[in-house]
Design a protein around this nucleic acid. Structure first.
Lengths: 228, 228
DNA sequence: TGGGCGGTGTCACCGAATTGTCATCACGCT
DNA sequence: AGCGTGATGACAATTCGGTGACACCGCCCA
């Protein structure tokens, strides 16, 4: 359940309140006091979730959210809005902008953590610790184990992460570059063709139980996990 | 992926090392040995990315970066910092200034090219990818799949793009030239007759499910996708 | 300290899929 | 029949993904 969370909030007291609580919940916290900084941080490395204050100096949180939705790279980033105002009108406008959830100040730390957890579960399956079961394969992040029927399949760390990502995002083609970003990390420098090799190792491991056909090649585009 | 890159670096040997490698990667390279020159070049024409040395004679790279971030016209320009120092403190200060990424000397040419590619990708505009359903065929760019009923139809990359374009612009005739521009790309030199061949391959693939009549020939004009 | 060892990232090479062109054939008009 | 246009089949070049081999690297253990 550990996730990297970008907190965009200008008031220092609230900032640290949030930080402490999120860290206690096991999350990695990155802080930004204004939209400019936040944008840069997002540019440098994608967080798993953004906690965004409504009112900010300079560009407002709502504008930033709109920008995030416009950019393909951040379109899917879950955003939770943080606002002091609790009026209905604002909630509507916020959701309209594409916020995934709302928290109105004052909030309880427990509510904060709970909502974040909920949004993560809904939005970024691979950072949760739920087991995935698909196409006759079961992958359990907690025990770090993959089973097909009652056979255990062994994977190296990278293959495991790769399979985990693909299984939590099935029926979707990913280019080698996207896979590198998602599985290896945004800033890791690795040859694109390396993905091929790991796909092959993944398939080799799955072959023992005949599940290797779940990992499909889409020529000219990339790879896809498909259970159909 | 080709971009115009402004390289601000005072040491001739490194300058040419960078230049050679970037050109090989298909980029246009503009060189500047100091901040004054760089500023003038940026004023004349905005590059797609700036590769900026940390230490420069006169005004330092970091100050230049700060200026770039202040100016509205250059605020969104991606900047990659180039530094000999690898200390954490510097990295933090650099990101603080607004660099999009970091490369510490010595660096491998491949790393250089890869990081530039990554940064450019992050700044790239989005493209919407909604599924199209028309005339009994469903094309989903996300999963990169075409289905008729519950049959899957396989296409080569070009046929897929061609069908995608036609389905998103139905009931409209396109000349071969227009199709070449839209599907192949503006500056590609390909025989017009080649379109015929791909139309045929498209039809051949659609024939299996009897949907080949959706792609129609308009004698003397071109081709059309029609669901009627 | 010096090997094994599992895991990774790169390469070079191979076979298969894809593509652009041509030469020809077919068809609809006048 | 004679044109003008498309459709087709064949083909050679090129691109792309699959693979096996191999060099590292960090670790554990003798």
């Amino acid at each position: 359940m550990a996730a990297t969370i970008l907190v965009v909030e200008d008031e220092p007291s609230i900032q640290s309140l949030i930080e402490v609580n999120l860290r206690r919940a096991g999350h990695e916290v990155i802080l930004a006091s204004d939209v400019e900084t936040a944008r840069r941080l997002v540019g440098a490395a994608l967080p798993d979730l953004i906690l965004l204050d409504w009112m900010l100096p300079g560009l407002s949180g709502i504008d930033f959210a709109r920008q995030l939705r416009r950019d393909a790279r951040t379109k899917m980033l879950p955003v939770i809005m943080l606002t002091a105002r609790s009026e209905e009108r604002d909630k509507v406008e916020g959701l309209d902008v594409g916020a995934d959830d709302y928290i109105t100040k004052p909030f309880s730390p427990r509510e904060l953590v709970a909502r974040i957890k909920a949004v993560l579960r809904r939005h970024a399956p691979q950072v949760t610790e739920d087991a995935v079961e698909l196409g006759g394969i079961r992958l359990d992040p907690v025990s770090h184990r993959v089973t097909a029927g009652n056979e255990d399949i062994a994977f190296g760390p990278t293959e495991f992460r790769l399979l985990h990502f693909l299984m939590t995002h099935p029926e979707r083609v990913y280019t080698r570059t996207q896979l590198l970003d998602q599985v290896w990390g945004d800033h890791v420098f690795v040859e694109e063709r390396t993905v091929d090799v790991h796909i092959r190792r993944l398939r080799a491991a799955l072959e023992a139980t005949g599940h290797d056909s779940l990992v499909q090649t889409v020529r000219g585009s990339g790879y896809r996990f498909s259970a159909t």
